[in-house]
Design a protein around this nucleic acid. Structure first.
Lengths: 109, 109
DNA sequence: ATTATTAATCGTATATTTGCGATGAACTTA
DNA sequence: TAAGTTCATCGCAAATATACGATTAATAAT
């Protein structure tokens, strides 16, 4: 990409919200998170039974969710147990909540 | 992409949420929406003063937000007045709210 | 009619995302 | 030690996203 021109200064909150939103921006990842919301935790193998994608593809989605901080993995040899990262989950919840609540409805011009 | 193998069947709600999230997944679009939340409406020109990107780039971001249903444009020659689409805004708010609230916290395994 | 203003769209370049199969790493079990 | 299980990572292909400048379209003002 040719963004040589500018490095834009966004508010930290703006970037954080965008990062969370981006992580949520794929139906497979929503489905994974919905699964985790109900199961509290899961292993990659569980997801393979629920989502018809290659193991490597699901692993990549998990990696992204982990990078965004929404989930965390805990080794439980030979498996890895994935859970929602409650701290960041709450942070994301807060950010989205604020975002949708800040609306200041006034008549236009 | 090589997704010849499967067309995955997601819940309508899942796809809808992912679509909204994807639209929010870029700091420029968050900034635009934050601007609209406070101003109620704006013209593309207003945004050019606030965001150091080319006019065509901002126009593209507006197009995406419009495609996601989060904003709407009303011709106000020779300008175009953009506002938040309240109906879909509320729908998105509801979807995110449900998503973050559905968490069923139980001990693991 | 001509010019100015505003914003969309086109064409292009590059980066990122999504997906797969194959392979590798870590640990268990036989 | 050898084979099995589980998951990450690599390498690749194709699609999509991001950004820009140039152009076009629509309307207003002169």
């Amino acid at each position: 990409m040719r963004r040589t021109t500018n490095t834009i200064d966004y508010l930290a909150e703006t970037e954080e919200l965008a990062r969370f939103a981006k992580a949520l921006g794929h139906p497979t990842r929503i489905k994974i998170l919905n699964y985790l919301e109900n199961q509290s935790c899961c292993f990659t193998g569980d997801l393979l039974e629920v989502i018809p994608l290659a193991q490597s593809t699901i692993s990549q989605h998990l990696k992204e969710l982990k990078a965004a901080g929404l989930i965390q993995g805990e080794v439980n040899p030979p498996k890895i147990k994935y859970c929602i990262n409650q701290e960041n989950w709450d942070k994301a919840k807060q950010l989205f909540n604020n975002f949708f609540s800040d609306r200041n409805i006034v008549s236009c011009e």
